[in-house]
Amino acid sequence: MENKNYTQVINITPELKSRIDELISHYPADKRKSALLPVLHEVQDAHDNWLSADLMAKVAEILEITPIEVFEVVTFYTMYNQKPMGKYMFEFCLTSCCSLRGAEDMLEYACEKLGIQPGGTTEDGMFSVVGVQCLGACGYAPMMQLGDFYKEHLTPAQIDQIIEDCKAGKIILHDK
């Protein structure tokens, strides 16, 4: 899977462009680069949750910076994906406080249920399961991030329900 050359259809819709322009307007006119992180989130959300080199070059063009300036940021921050991920990405926090309350068990349960390894994606491209570092929900453990939202106080039964809801298209991923 790692060596595949993935292709990505780039589509900067008018809605996306207008949101990007709004974000750029939050910084002084000569500091467009400052909008890079928020813009990358919007662009990634609108492009199946990942950023290809071509898409990064497009962002560079919009922000009037060089592609390497985008690439070095994308590779630094964990929330940007450089390869396709599942549409529904279960990100389980595994740091101490969550670990004390059974986070590993939940991650393993989800993997078993979906028939994948941690870090893997189902063949239909619907689900990924990954372990991540502290998400700031230590008092509500165990938990995971799904799109823009947190699912907290998880139990195996709830994970079952979330998977069903994803399959039924009932889960809202982004708060636009």
Partner: peptide
């Protein structure tokens, strides 16, 4: 005043 978001870096 504006809000700016990071992307996963302690």
């Amino acid at each position: 005043l504006h809000v700016h978001c990071g992307a996963g870096a302690y």
